[in-house]
């Protein structure tokens, strides 16, 4: 457990480093949050900047932001004054979590089925499945999303083309998000499963006459699962925090869309908030993935 305590503190350090980098990167980018549709008189501009403490030296601003963020006060949006960053994230995050969770589940199921089939199949079928998985990886999600909307919403009219209302609007975007990772994961899983099947212990178990289903499940699958679990952390973090591409195509009010809007508006508090949420998810999910990996296959602890 000691190792995980160390990992935990390293993660906090990582979040701090990302905070610092994001702070300076976003201030470095040209433009300002108040450079809008019309030019403001210089006195008004000055008083706005003073109000938000943007006229102080960058180092002072950084310390203030760091102290506030650490105590849980993430400030309020510059673009829409009075709206708290935590409220914006609180509204957008559940949407992205739902969508990402469904997409993650779909891509896991798809990749495990495809991967198992690929590992067990003989050559002509195996080749076809392999090229199918390459095709999945090569299909950009925006393209797939566009085709899905065109086919299911416009031509057939059975599923909503956009927005977020009810379970029917989850189907198309989650599928568009799930396809590319599932091809990649299927490949990983199939390679690992093939290796396991070739290994002596599997062949020995087979020789002992263990029934095929049990053989595959507890002698093959369990040992191959780690290939997928080990990269599940980063994959699930990018799923759960939303894919901006898919969210913007389907006009889904998730965190990915909030993020890009905040960057283009230079809405500093909102950029910091969304980046922090993303980083914390990434770190948390990677840690969780490693824990699950060790639980499934204790051999990795030795590494």
């Amino acid at each position: 457990m000691n190792r995980f305590v160390r990992r935990f503190f390293a993660s906090i350090l990582l979040v701090w480093a990302v905070f610092t980098l994001t702070f300076f990167l976003s201030r470095w980018a040209p433009g300002s949050p108040f450079q809008g549709e019309r030019k403001l008189p210089p006195e008004i501009m000055r008083s706005i900047l003073a109000y938000y403490h943007l006229d102080r030296p960058l180092s002072v601003q950084y310390w203030e932001a760091l102290k506030k963020t650490a105590t849980g006060d993430w400030g309020s949006s510059f673009k829409n004054p009075g709206i708290r960053v935590s409220d914006v994230i609180g509204q957008a995050l559940p949407v992205s979590l739902t969508l990402g969770g469904v997409a993650l589940l779909e891509s896991l199921i798809l990749s495990l089925v495809l991967g198992t089939w690929m590992a067990l199949a003989k050559d002509p079928v195996k080749g076809i499945l392999r090229s199918l998985s390459s095709f999945e990886v090569a299909l950009p999600s925006f393209l797939l999303a566009a085709l899905l909307i065109d086919f299911f919403s416009i031509r057939l009219g059975v599923l909503p083309p956009a927005l977020w209302s009810g379970w029917r609007s989850v189907l198309l975007p989650s599928f568009a998000m799930a396809i590319a990772p599932s091809g990649y994961l299927a490949r990983l899983f199939a390679t690992s499963l093939e290796e396991t099947i070739r290994s002596p212990h599997y062949q020995a178990a087979r020789g002992r006459g263990i029934r095929p289903f049990r053989l595959l499940l507890s002698h093959g699958w369990l040992l191959s699962l780690n290939a997928v679990v080990s990269i599940l952390g980063p994959v699930s973090a990018s799923f759960l925090t939303g894919s901006f591409v898919v969210e913007s195509l389907f006009a889904i009010p998730g965190i990915g869309r909030v993020f890009v809007l905040s960057v283009t508006n230079r809405d500093y508090p909102l950029i910091m908030g969304t980046t922090l949420v993303y980083t914390m998810f990434l770190v948390g999910m990677t840690l969780l993935g490693d824990l699950i990996g060790e639980w499934i296959d204790p051999r990795v602890r030795a590494l």
Binding site: L14, V18, L25, A29, P30, V263
Partner: peptide, 19 residues
């Protein structure tokens, strides 16, 4: 490298495109 990994790719790309 890990810190750079943990930054959203889109943040890096968008900020550089703006600059």
């Amino acid at each position: 490298l890990e810190v750079w990994y943990a930054l959203p790719e889109l943040l890096i790309a968008t900020i550089l495109m703006l600059a």
